[in-house]
């Protein structure tokens, strides 16, 4: 986790090419459809629409 000038943690969001959205940092996640536990630290969110563990990535994007 990157530190900013103020010493506070910074949220980093990375769009992985042909893969999920990787979020690292201080977040509040709200899923309007499901009641899912929020993993601490790092979250991988599905971007392909095929995950069976939505909103999280389960690697389904690799299956053609």
């Amino acid at each position: 986790m990157e530190e900013t000038k103020s010493g506070k943690s910074k949220t980093i969001i990375e769009v992985i090419d042909s893969g999920p959205l990787k979020i690292t940092g201080n977040i509040v996640l709200k899923d309007f459809k499901r009641d899912k536990e929020i993993p601490m630290g790092e979250v991988l969110l599905c971007r392909c629409g095929k995950s069976s563990d939505k909103p999280f990535c389960d690697g389904s994007h690799k299956n053609k």
Partner: peptide, 17 residues
């Protein structure tokens, strides 16, 4: 407010992040 606030991530129903 602190310089870095928590980022809110909303998963919209049948919609985007």
């Amino acid at each position: 407010a602190p310089e870095e606030n928590p980022v809110t991530i909303k998963i919209m129903n049948d919609g985007p992040i």
